[in-house]
Amino acid sequence: MQAVKYARATSVDEAVQMLRDGGDVARVLAGGTDVIVLARERRRDIDLFVDIKHIPDLIGIDYQAGQGLTLGAATPLYEVYNHPDVKAHYPALVEASHVIGGTAIQGRASLGGNLANSSPAADGIPAMIALGGTAHIAGPNGRRDVPIAEFCTAPGRNVLETGEFIVSLSFPDPAANSGSAWERFIPRNEMDIAVTNAGVYLALDGDTVADARVAIGAVAPTPLLVPAAAEALIGKPLTDETIEAAAEAARQAANPITDMRGTADQRRHLAGVLVKRVLNKAAARARGDE
């Protein structure tokens, strides 16, 4: 473990101040499940943890019909997947947050942390992109909002500037007759980093796709929104052919590498498999079959 110090912030302004004073070697600590490992293994130069989870704005879940969902960025995953409104309206978030790490990780880890860690294989990010989420950021120059689809810039890198952190995440209220779903492929049945993952949001108008967002992960330097996959669906009936077209768009968008967790071919193939599976699942939800 690096020679880190610890400071607890109780307000957003205090946290901004601490992070600004700490400079590049100050890091936000929420659930700590990624950042503590980074510091322990000396993979990043960190000498100050600013604990933000005691800031009231950072914890909590608020859903308003017609408005949507706001999550405090440090809200632990287990609160997310156990929340009745999240379960009712954002099943993709439930599916992703339920399998990030083991149960003990979920007692601490948060979707804000998952996003800020910006791993290409992050399980939460494709779900959040598919649901059209926005990250609300605070920093020395005030507040700003960034679409989650544009948040990550490279493996472990993102739009946050020195002193900035994510305060909350918000998601629009899903349309009527819509559904979302998320799935990943891992060699075991739990506790693995995704070889590939995929999240979708789908709204139907009768048999026709009124709206769609498709996102895939672990197939590029950042999780990807795949507009071509949505275009293959929107305005068309949801059939095996249109689903296959969306899957093909996902395979085309994928630009994976080969590493210990999977080969490039395997990942590209799985992107197609998973997109088909989550589209079918989301469609069933949109139709009220599930």
Binding site: G32, I36, P76, Y78, A104, R108
Partner: peptide, 12 residues
């Protein structure tokens, strides 16, 4: 709440 104590700082 269930946690991994290796991923909690004592200071927390």
């Amino acid at each position: 709440r269930l946690v991994n104590s290796c991923l909690v700082m004592a200071a927390e």
